[in-house]
């Protein structure tokens, strides 16, 4: 299926600090994609790179590409206002604008030039209903939005985001400030909306990811560790770090016993050189391989089936280079 958002070799830096490290990933169309990972690992940063809100961060340096419907949004010609209206954003802390409930919902429409009163009225009802807030506020649309409860405010933010008719909804831990009932309401909304919108949801609540997500991305310290269909990643993750995170264990870096640089060189030499370097290691020792083409990468990943070696982590380190961390296992060793 065609991806809606396609991230290609995206890196983000603040000064000397690397926040996102060569991330490449496709976000499927009309599905809920959950970005999970411990806090500070770059989830928000990744999310905000999708609508270029990252540009507002002073000192953020972005490289790589983000394609939305095949168009590179980091192209200098990108019209930011149009790009951003294609994505509704729900932030961690519900943020209502200092105006009435009504004005909050139509804010985006007014910004984009809609003046027709009856159209605005219709939009208010339609999107407040879609956010499941209409019945609670229909008699006080012109009250200040800041008087709503925090859970109602978040649903108002949802309505406000939907009103500009986006294709994508970005949620940055949208339920983390809410009580359980309000959180449940927001979750229900997401499930109801997922047939019409591509939803990207940052969450650090694993159960929430299980309940909602079709697709899961696991980030750790700015690296993309694992991604795939939710049931696969959440119940039988392929990589050790993902397993550790899901089980609530401490995530350890691997002790590297040897390194093997397979960059350059003839492709047909590869199996030989690979076996050669493994010979010196004992079972259970970990080594790192550097490759510079995707064919080779795939070949090595297939080793897991073929020779029983365990691939612990694959990490892209530049636009054409990957680092593969492998644990040596005996032939026929069953996992």
């Amino acid at each position: 299926m065609r991806p809606h958002i396609s991230v290609k070799d995206l890196s983000v830096q603040y000064g000397a600090l690397t926040i996102l490290n060569h991330i490449s990933i496709d976000i499927p169309d009309k599905k809920i994609t959950a970005i999970i990972g411990p806090s500070g690992c770059g989830k928000t940063t990744l999310l905000k790179s999708f609508n270029r809100l990252l540009d507002l961060q002073e000192g953020a340096k972005v490289s790589g590409q983000v394609l939305v419907d095949g168009e590179d949004i980091y192209d200098p010609g990108t019209e930011m206002t149009h790009l951003r209206r294609r994505m509704g954003l729900l932030s961690q802390k519900p943020t209502v604008l200092p105006m009435s409930i009504y004005e909050n919902v139509v804010y985006g429409l007014r910004i984009h030039g809609e003046k027709n009163k009856s159209k605005l009225d219709q939009a208010v009802e339609k999107y407040l209903r879609e956010a499941n807030l209409w019945n609670e506020v229909k008699d006080r649309l012109h009250d200040s939005a800041s008087r709503l409860s925090i859970g109602q405010q978040q649903r108002l933010c949802l309505a406000r985001g939907l009103a500009v008719e986006p294709e994508i909804i970005l949620g940055d831990e949208p339920t983390s400030a809410l009580d359980p009932v309000s959180a449940e309401q927001i979750e229900q909304r997401f499930l109801a909306l997922k047939n019409q919108y591509t939803i990207v949801l940052v969450t650090h609540i694993l159960r929430q990811a299980k309940r909602l997500a079709d697709y899961v991305i696991f980030l750790y310290l700015g690296n993309l560790i694992e991604h795939g269909p939710a049931e696969k990643v959440l119940s039988s993750p392929r990589f050790v770090k993902t397993q550790a995170y899901l089980e609530g264990r401490f995530i350890e870096e691997f002790p590297i016993a040897a390194e093997l640089d397979l960059c350059g060189g003839a492709k047909q030499d590869f199996p030989f050189r690979f076996e050669e370097s493994l010979r010196g290691l004992t079972e259970g020792q970990i080594f790192k391989t550097l490759v510079d083409n995707e064919g080779l990468l795939r070949q090595i990943l297939d080793l897991e089936q073929g020779q029983g070696h365990k691939v612990l982590e694959v990490r892209q380190i530049s636009s054409t280079q990957w680092e593969i961390i492998i644990e040596k296992r005996g032939i026929g060793y069953s996992i």
Binding site: N51, L53, L56, R84, S91, L97, I111, V164
Partner: peptide, 24 residues
């Protein structure tokens, strides 16, 4: 910052954001 971000995320230009959010 969150309030400015909301306006910009909805597609406001900087001037629209300043006028409708900051000044208000």
């Amino acid at each position: 910052f969150g309030m400015r971000e909301v306006a910009l995320a909805l597609g406001a230009t900087k001037w629209q954001m300043v006028k409708t959010v900051v000044l208000r």
